[in-house]
Simulated assay, not measured.
Amino acid sequence: MSVQPLELDQIVMQSDGFLASNMNDEKVMMSVESGKYYNLGSIGGRIWELIESPTSVRQVVTSLREEYEIDQDACERQVLSFLQTMLTEKLIRTGT
């Protein structure tokens, strides 16, 4: 089953069933169902925190740009790519 590409105005949120913890300034997670581990890194961990409640991809980009010095286009591309990977891995889900 293929996953539709994310867009900036889509709402994303954390999927249920993951335990997350901080380890050496990086966010690590484990799937309760599969036992698979994920290391989101520090920026990925920040994105994970930002989508704790449903939010648009665009708002994630805006929040990151307020916290880090990064070009708008580069931030959009990197966030979309990261979230797309998370969606493919079923770490996140989309909503309305």
Score class of each variant (00 low, 15 high):
S81A: 14
L80G: 00
D16Q: 14
D16C: 08
Y38R: 00
R46S: 07
V60F: 08
A74F: 05
E49P: 00
L87Y: 02
T85W: 03
T96R: 12
Q10V: 05
I47V: 15
L19C: 08
L64C: 08
V60M: 10
P54G: 08
M13G: 03
V32P: 00
G35Q: 07
G45C: 04
S31T: 05
E76W: 04
W48V: 00
L50E: 11
S53G: 07
Q10C: 06
T94E: 07
F82K: 11
L50S: 03
I43A: 03
N24Y: 09
T55V: 15
Y38K: 00
C75E: 04
M29K: 02
V28N: 01
I51R: 06
S15N: 15
R65Q: 15
V79W: 06
E66N: 15
E67C: 05
P5N: 11
R46C: 04
M23E: 14
V57Y: 12
Q72T: 10
L50T: 06
K36Y: 04
I11E: 06
V60R: 04
Q59W: 10
E69L: 01
G41C: 05
A74T: 13
Q84G: 13
A74Q: 10
M13A: 11
V28A: 01
F82N: 03
D9R: 14
T62Y: 14
G45V: 01
T96K: 12
Q10D: 14
S15P: 01
G17I: 08
S53P: 00
D71I: 05
G41E: 04
N39I: 12
R65Y: 04
L80F: 10
I47F: 07
T88P: 00
D9Y: 09
D73C: 02
M1P: 06
F18Q: 03
D25L: 14
S21Q: 14
K36P: 00
N22Q: 11
L19N: 09
S42R: 11
G45T: 03
R93C: 10
R46Q: 13
Q59K: 15
Q4I: 07
Q4N: 12
G35R: 07
S2L: 09
S56P: 05
E66K: 15
V79Y: 06
E52P: 03
S63Y: 11
C75V: 10
E49K: 02
M23L: 14
I51M: 15
T94R: 13
Y68F: 15
Q59A: 13
K27A: 04
M23S: 13
V57P: 12
M23N: 07
L40W: 06
F18R: 03
Y68T: 02
S56Y: 05
S31F: 01
G35C: 08
M13N: 05
E49A: 07
C75S: 14
N39F: 05
L50G: 04
E7T: 15
I47T: 04
G41F: 00
T88I: 09
Q14R: 15
I70P: 00
A20K: 10
Q4P: 11
K90F: 02
K36I: 12
V57S: 10
E66P: 02
A74D: 10
M30T: 13
L91M: 15
Y68V: 01
N39D: 12
R46L: 12
L64Q: 09
V3P: 02
I43P: 00
N39R: 14
E76Q: 15
E26N: 10
